[in-house]
Design a protein around this nucleic acid. Structure first.
Lengths: 328, 328
DNA sequence: TTGAAAGCGCTACCAT
DNA sequence: ATGGTAGCGCTTTCAA
């Protein structure tokens, strides 16, 4: 690999000059600049980021911490983050924490050791103490810790919308799925739906679940119909579980949406591919990722008057697991 | 952030000594070592990876390049890679190329600039010239360029197995979906199935598609039944398209698997959640990621006699979109 | 067994 | 407008 010195020597200038044209600052004569540029191209030189980072005491990397990229909601967040940080010349150091505090800490340490300029974290860790000591900008994504910049969707509202939609569409024996206790957004949705249902003239039950994982989704679905066989409306904790419930209902011979209506949460890509296609509360995952990245970059640039908390709206996506409003 | 000099000063030794205990090499007196260790803990010191990388001329980062993490097959590969490289103390610099040659090159440059120790690439770029100049170990994943180390599943065999399975189960008018032309594994599957079908006593048609994307899957499904309404067996190019086909068939009132049998490819997590659950050719994605990481690490360590090409077997996962063999 | 010092490739300051 | 050079934090000779 060619270094800045090779370029300097070949172009017959000092390394300082090469550095100046590289970074486009300081005075450089037009012809000198041209000569240097040509040499750079000729030697196929590209500057060593590591040396640069060492001197600057910060890299052009941003750390992104996710619970698990295998859950289809997170790749969308990640893409939003990636595309947005790339626009500003940053790259992503990625880690999956698996909800494991040790892994989370390890990654945070890695981020610091590699002098990232900022961190975006979407883990569900209860305590944010891990981030307290950091003198780096940190943005939480899909989480809402107090006193930290964060980007998230309005889960409570989502829960309310889902509940209201089901009630409006004539469901009378609703089952509300309560997501994992340690996942804050899941609890927000739950609370939102709960408050709405409490005020409505319907019977409802709550089914508590402890995971979002694919492998477990079927289990919750079976449990649901075993415990509450006469349910005619389900508000799921997320789309994966909703799809499992949908198909379990079909398996049991229920008609959808005539016998049972189902609403999911997230609007992951495969939701529109289910049969019947899933009605759901859409979180704008990609946009959330983008917003988190934008916010972080603003913090990195030390811009003033930064909006510290960005809440994005959720929307009801009416597909075919709910009845049309007039059909009630 | 404390530096090695802070530690040295506080412990009353030279930086060289601190470095020795850090890296566990060279002679260090037992008591000196102990004192240094204590100081490290006391100052909460953790070494600056950037400085280390600069001197060593290599980091502890590995570059992973994917086409698109939003496609559920790739997160699984990525997790396999991540978990395995973590075991050896490496971290992941991640990039999505979106099948865009410029993005791919940009990421490769980033990898080089950050002095990664190796690269794992799962992009579908036709020419591997981008990698030719690199004097870094590179492993291709889910791709099979000639003369490069690579890890992939046996797509041809998968195609054959799928075709054979459908024929054995009594399908007589099979439609074979041909995946995007630039995706080599898709062509392997196609060729495998094609060769099997050519030798069997069945009618079959080929439907050419140009993408794997969620948004397009529905389109292919509709096209399929428009062009070949009397199809009684479908060999899909991947699970996403298969699920779309499955649900389109249901929408059209077909019985599955009585009227139409469907086989997918990949076995992504949501395939077991479809209704009826999808029969498919399973690629061991997570293991593929692991194997690629293991192979790369062996190359990094310059181990001798390295198996350059690792082909993993695919398996038929019989679920409910194919008939039981005896029912034919 | 330990320390001094060179040097990894770059940026930025201070000269000229 | 350009060059010389210190120094970012670390590892690794070489000497002691």
């Amino acid at each position: 690999m060619a270094t800045i010195r090779d370029v300097a020597k070949e172009a017959g200038v000092s390394v300082a000059t090469v550095s100046r044209v590289l970074n486009d600052n300081g005075y450089v004569g037009a012809d000198t600049r041209k000569r240097v540029m040509e040499t750079i191209k000729h030697l196929n030189y590209s500057p060593n980021e590591v040396a640069r980072s060492l001197y600057k005491r910060e890299s052009r990397l941003i750390g992104l911490l996710l619970p698990d990229i295998t859950n289809p909601f997170f790749p969308q967040l990640a893409r939003g983050v990636e595309d947005e940080v790339n626009r500003s010349g940053f790259r992503l150091l990625l880690g999956n924490s698996d909800e494991d505090a040790t892994k989370e800490l390890d990654y945070i340490q890695t981020f610091v050791q590699n002098q990232v300029v900022g961190i975006i974290s979407a883990t569900n860790n209860t305590d944010s103490d891990n981030y307290k000591e950091l003198d780096l900008p940190v943005v939480f994504l899909d989480r809402t810790p107090k006193n930290y910049p964060s980007v998230f969707a309005d889960g409570r509202d989502g829960g309310r919308i889902a509940a209201k939609a089901l009630v409006e569409r004539g469901a009378t024996k609703i089952t509300l799925i309560k997501g994992p206790a340690h996942v804050q957004p899941a609890q927000d949705r739950f609370q939102g739906a709960l408050s709405e249902l409490s005020q409505a003239a319907v019977d409802f039950s709550v089914l508590s679940t402890t995971s979002y994982a694919f492998e477990d989704a079927k289990k919750w679905a079976e449990e649901l119909f075993a415990k509450y066989p006469d349910t005619d409306g389900v508000i799921s904790s997320n789309d994966i579980v909703a799809i499992a419930i949908l198909h379990e209902a079909l398996r049991l011979g229920r008609n959808i949406p005539e016998d049972v209506q189902i609403i999911g949460f997230d609007d992951i890509p495969q939701s529109s591919l289910s049969y019947p296609s899933l009605s759901t509360i859409r979180q704008p995952a990609y946009e959330m990722g983008q917003e988190a990245a934008k916010l972080l970059i603003r913090m990195i640039k030390k811009e003033q008057e930064i909006e510290q908390t960005i809440q994005l709206p959720v929307t009801l996506v009416e597909r075919n697991t709910t009845r049309k409003v007039d059909e009630k």
